[in-house]
Amino acid sequence: MANNTLNAIKRSLDDYVGEKIMLKANGGRRKTIERTGILEETYPSVFIIKLDEEQHSFKRVSYSYADILTESIELTVCKDDGEVKITYSQR
Rank of each mutant, 00 (worst) to 15 (best):
N3T: 02
N3S: 04
T5I: 09
T5C: 03
N7G: 10
N7L: 14
I9R: 05
R11T: 07
R11N: 08
R11D: 09
S12H: 11
S12A: 09
L13A: 12
L13M: 08
D15Y: 15
D15F: 15
Y16D: 13
E19N: 14
E19C: 15
E19Y: 13
E19F: 13
K20F: 05
K20T: 13
M22Q: 14
M22I: 11
L23E: 06
L23M: 10
L23F: 07
L23K: 06
L23V: 11
G27T: 01
G27M: 04
R29K: 06
R30H: 04
R30P: 01
K31E: 11
T32H: 10
E34S: 12
E34W: 13
I38W: 05
L39R: 07
L39D: 05
L39G: 09
L39V: 07
E40P: 01
E41N: 10
T42R: 04
P44T: 01
P44S: 04
P44M: 01
P44W: 02
P44R: 00
P44Q: 00
S45R: 13
S45Y: 12
F47E: 09
F47K: 10
F47S: 08
K50F: 00
L51D: 01
L51N: 02
L51C: 00
D52I: 02
D52Y: 01
E53W: 03
E53T: 10
E53N: 11
E53Q: 08
E54R: 02
Q55D: 00
H56A: 11
F58N: 09
K59R: 11
V61W: 09
S62V: 10
S64L: 01
S64F: 03
S64I: 01
A66R: 05
A66G: 00
I68M: 05
L69S: 00
L69T: 00
T70I: 07
T70D: 08
E71V: 08
E71A: 09
E74Y: 06
L75C: 08
L75T: 10
V77I: 15
V77L: 05
C78D: 03
K79R: 13
D80Y: 12
D80P: 12
D81W: 09
D81Y: 13
V84K: 09
I86Q: 10
I86D: 12
I86N: 09
T87Q: 04
Y88R: 08
Y88M: 08
Y88D: 08
S89V: 12
S89C: 11
Q90D: 07
R91S: 15
R91W: 14
R91D: 15
